[in-house]
Simulated scan of single mutants.
Amino acid sequence: MASSAPAAPKRQPSVLNKAYLILYNFASAVAWSVVLGRTVSLLSQSGPQAVYPGVGEWTKWTQTVAGIEIVHSLLGVVRAPLLTTLAQVASRLLLVWPVVNVFPQLASQPWYSSMLIAWSVTEVIRYSFFALSISGFQPRPLTWLRYTTFYILYPIGISSECALIWQAIKPAGDLDPLFPWALYGVLAIYVPGSFMLFTHMMSQRRKIMRNLKAQSTKAQ
């Protein structure tokens, strides 16, 4: 699922905590920029079958490192809701490890490329937004992108994820008869899970856009 949990500080952070969050978000934005650049380049030059060999390992570990955001939320380092963070991180780890890593042949399908594009565009915007916000800057265009592009990127990412999970069901049965049932279970919770993430972002957008409008009114 596409990322949705904000990474702004829960309370006024210490200098060390603030520096850590800026560094983490900046490094994450760079890492996902690599995913985006490589995916688009490989896709345009050689087609979807070249994407996984060229960027699959980088994506897998970039997303795995992002699992630390669960710890951030759990410890209150950021104000991201724990359940929302857990849902989006767990769903992505499922895609990069038990699905694509086990069945790399699925990554030759266009769904893998569209998933990476949706993920990486979302993350470049998200991490850039938080790195700048924590640093004391909040460019309005970037704020608008952060709280608007999910209307397009979430459906692309979620549908791509579901397609890959669905395609993994048949080969999963060759490994373990229970594996397909686990994947069916994952698909069953995607609808409520996706609804939770999407409505959370819509709620965040209403709040942020209302604040931006109020700031514009005061500035006039």
Rank of each mutant, 00 (worst) to 15 (best):
Q138M: 11
L75M: 11
V71I: 15
S133R: 10
R38P: 05
A50S: 15
I117C: 06
N101Y: 15
F150N: 03
W58A: 07
L95Q: 09
V65D: 03
P139V: 10
V100R: 02
R126D: 03
T39H: 07
V121Q: 05
L93V: 08
V102W: 11
R146G: 04
F130A: 01
V102L: 15
L142P: 02
S91P: 09
F103P: 12
P48Y: 06
V96K: 12
I152S: 11
L94A: 15
E123L: 14
G157W: 02
P53T: 11
Q105F: 03
S41K: 12
Q45Y: 07
F103H: 14
G47P: 09
F129P: 00
T39Y: 05
Y112L: 08
Q45W: 06
L42F: 13
R92A: 08
R92C: 10
I152N: 01
G157V: 04
S120F: 03
W144A: 03
P110I: 00
V77W: 08
I125R: 05
F150M: 04
V99Q: 11
M115C: 08
L94N: 09
I70S: 06
L116E: 13
S46H: 15
H72R: 06
T64A: 14
I152Y: 11
V71R: 10
L145W: 01
Q63T: 14
F129L: 00
F103Q: 13
Y52T: 01
T143Q: 02
V65C: 04
W111A: 15
L82D: 05
P104C: 05
I134D: 07
M115K: 06
I68H: 12
R38S: 13
L75S: 09
A131R: 00
G47Y: 09
V89N: 04
A131M: 10
Q63A: 12
Q45K: 13
L43A: 10
L74Y: 12
L75Y: 02
T62F: 00
